[in-house]
Nucleic acid binder design. Sequence first.
DNA 1: CGGAATCCTTCACGATACTG
DNA 2: CAGTATCGTGAAGGATTCCG
Lengths: 137, 137
Amino acid sequence: METTVTLEEPVSAEACRVHMVPITEVLGQVGSKWTMHVIVALATGPKRFSELKAHIGGVSQKVLTSTLRDLERDGLVSRKVTPSIPPRVDYELTAMGQELRGPLGAIGRWAVDNQTRVQAARDRFAHAEDERRRDAW
Amino acid sequence: METTVTLEEPVSAEACRVHMVPITEVLGQVGSKWTMHVIVALATGPKRFSELKAHIGGVSQKVLTSTLRDLERDGLVSRKVTPSIPPRVDYELTAMGQELRGPLGAIGRWAVDNQTRVQAARDRFAHAEDERRRDAW
DNA sequence: CGGAATCCTTCACGATACTG
DNA sequence: CAGTATCGTGAAGGATTCCG
């Protein structure tokens, strides 16, 4: 019994919804504003908290902490504490985190390859909106 | 001059951030709670508004409308109005929308393939949390 | 240094009611 | 049928302060 539906051949609306649950969950996590940045930053190797914060830039300490917690919770990132003075905490992609780089890279490449097309579409849309506004007057 | 960095070989922190912009934007959109559902629903062919709503299930018409607007705005979905009585509106993936199915499918497959591993990691994490709580007392 | 705690703002989402 | 208009809510994110 094959249950790999995803984006190819939906069976029923209900079966499709059930299948979407883990996907939605993962995307909700990945779509979170900073998750992608963290994974990219860690893709080249382990980093300390302050290194991550500096590398990413523009993220608050609180949000970075919670992002890292979520990733650790899901087993994508490992957290290694060295209780020295001052303390030292290293973050690193786990094996599972490394595996996510592939699929994430596919999205990333699509985004980079298509940003001009998306921008053009947005311009067209904004322009069409203007025209409708003009017609209304 | 090659500028395809994404997830493979970061150059500088700044160059990396610049590259992340379109990716973050796309992921923010895709990570939006219902975008994925809409694309999956439309992957098999055009659908009317009410068909989409019924197929997805659990989405309010307001949110579905704005989700579709965003997708239309970015040129991923086309909207065809038939001014009959009652009115009829068909939504369909554009060529660009179709192309997104590949990368999105990669994420989807990863999510489905790894949901048990993620769940196990969460259980471990929750268990470790409990133990720390017990130590505190 | 790496956080936890607190406060505050914004916004996505949802429920409801109304319209062409 | 396919929206638009309004109102309400919770959660995400950000700034700041304090702690081991």
